[in-house]
Simulated scan of single mutants.
Amino acid sequence: MTTSRNHQGAHGIGQAEEQLNNQIEAAVEIQGESEIDRNINQAARQPYKATKEETE
């Protein structure tokens, strides 16, 4: 049963994430996107690079 529950939980998370994305898109359409938001979105889409401290 846990497999089924885990699957349902993952599906629920995906639905919540999709709903949040829809809300963000709607807010951007209504009020526009701020420069900070654009910077955050751009940074979030960059591939992860480990810092020097993390690689040591």
Rank of each mutant, 00 (worst) to 15 (best):
E56H: 07
I24T: 06
T55N: 06
E33H: 01
D37C: 02
T2H: 10
T51M: 02
N39V: 03
E25Y: 03
A50E: 06
A44M: 06
E53R: 14
L20Y: 06
A44F: 00
A26P: 00
E17N: 15
R45P: 00
Q46E: 10
T51F: 02
A10N: 11
G14T: 08
G32P: 02
H11K: 15
Q42D: 07
E53Y: 10
D37N: 04
G12S: 15
S34Q: 03
E53C: 04
Q19C: 07
I30A: 10
T2M: 13
Q19W: 06
I36Y: 03
T51P: 00
Q31W: 11
V28P: 00
E56I: 11
Q31H: 13
T2V: 13
I36G: 01
K49T: 09
A27D: 10
E18M: 14
I24G: 02
T3L: 11
Y48A: 05
E33C: 02
N21Y: 05
N41Q: 12
A43K: 03
N21G: 06
E17T: 15
G14P: 02
V28K: 03
D37K: 04
E17Y: 08
R45Q: 09
V28C: 01
L20T: 05
R45C: 00
Q8P: 01
A50R: 08
E56T: 11
N21E: 13
K49S: 09
E54F: 04
A44W: 00
A10P: 01
Q19E: 15
T55V: 14
G9Q: 15
E29I: 07
E33Y: 00
I40P: 00
I36M: 07
R38V: 04
K49H: 12
E56P: 06
Q15L: 14
Q8M: 12
A10R: 14
A43Q: 06
E18D: 12
A26I: 03
E29C: 06
H7V: 09
Q31M: 06
R5Q: 13
A50S: 06
Q31K: 12
H11S: 13
Q42N: 12
R38N: 05
Q15W: 10
N21C: 05
I40Q: 01
Q31I: 03
I24M: 09
A16I: 12
A44L: 05
P47S: 06
E29F: 10
R5W: 08
A16S: 12
N21F: 04
L20R: 10
Y48V: 02
E29V: 07
P47V: 02
N6C: 10
Q42Y: 04
A26F: 07
N21R: 15
N22D: 08
N6G: 06
Q42H: 11
T51L: 03
I13P: 00
N39A: 11
I36E: 13
G14H: 07
E56L: 14
A10T: 10
Q19K: 15
E17D: 15
E18I: 06
A16D: 12
T3A: 13
I36W: 04
E54A: 11
